[in-house]
Design a protein around this nucleic acid. Sequence first.
DNA 1: TTTTGTGAAGTTTTTCACAGCG
DNA 2: CGCTGTGAAAAACTTCACAAAA
Lengths: 209, 209
Amino acid sequence: MRVAEPTVERLVQYYRLLEQLREEGRLVVSSHQMGEMLGIKASQVRKDLSYFGEIGKRGVGYHVDRLCGHISRILASPQIWRIGLVGVGHLGYALLGHSAFRSDKFRIDALFDVDPAKVGQEISGVPCFHLNDLPEVVRERDIQVLILTVPASAAQACVDKAVESQVVKGILSFAPTALVAPEGMLVYRVDISVELEKLLFFLKGGAGV
Amino acid sequence: MRVAEPTVERLVQYYRLLEQLREEGRLVVSSHQMGEMLGIKASQVRKDLSYFGEIGKRGVGYHVDRLCGHISRILASPQIWRIGLVGVGHLGYALLGHSAFRSDKFRIDALFDVDPAKVGQEISGVPCFHLNDLPEVVRERDIQVLILTVPASAAQACVDKAVESQVVKGILSFAPTALVAPEGMLVYRVDISVELEKLLFFLKGGAGV
DNA sequence: TTTTGTGAAGTTTTTCACAGCG
DNA sequence: CGCTGTGAAAAACTTCACAAAA
């Protein structure tokens, strides 16, 4: 069964919350309480969870530990993903140390850059290669996912290198630009300037002056 | 007229593309060409633009410079926003230098941290204050927007300080956690770990093992 | 002709409302 | 009783398809 993207997005949030509740020793939680804490409607929480079977207990709520395990299995990977990080500037370096990147679901296995001062070095314990060598390095190291923290002007060239490698399946790009990729390659974008523009747009109260 | 969030998101992309086309000396572009370059359907491009009046010429397309100016006015701010950046770790520092943050629509006017080594210093030319002083500093400096690059565990406390100030209207948070804020305060989140989890989820082909 | 602008249709996502179970 | 699970309704968003303008 196809799971919608907004649902996956919320599942990750449910999981985070449940981990926290579990640490606090909480045994049971209702959809209403979860929604309250996450800013999501209770009916939405129930609908999302219902796609995966009857997990809750009527009149009671959801068993925290059980639900946590359940979502964990839904989100689980069949493997530990190996990830290549392209562009070791400030943002790339920040992501290397970011809490989002401490997971047993994947690991950053190689860095890529064009700066001779970085190529050949280890940074935070990860070896840095030249961007030109990306296709062969990702093949050798079985890297299927790339994270792009390069300037907009360099991003498409990185995608092209990834396509050339024939083994990269997915890309998470932080470059503020559109990217063209072939069918079958999954590209997600985190566009910081778009988010900031949206915030400012709705802050001023919408269109017009 | 209310403009939908997905439309604003695309308007920012159209604007970027048009600036680029203008630099290249291009005079006219069709909805189909814009869509092609951005991975958006031509009908979607036309629908988005049509909300703001008849901007194109039938049989011809859109005049690049004119459309650029038009979107610029739609996205324009009534003021130069002053922004406070909370949390001067690697990510915060990266954002300070990020291309998304070179804009004449806003400027980073103050930094906040709890690290005694940073408080009292200027970093990239911006003064750093202690988080505890946030309410008064944002009032003095007329800061209405905060960017949070703090750990998840510290994020809610920052929101609470922002609420206390009574002048902060909007927050862009990079902390991987839900935040509760009162009605009227606009909170947007950029959740890197959620995006990565989504990518990996759909890479493995959806739910289940 | 070409390409826009747009009502109508289609699709996706959210919310409602209540039956059903513990 | 309280809370889940879920069809049905509503809302939001996208795509179609074509009339109308250049």
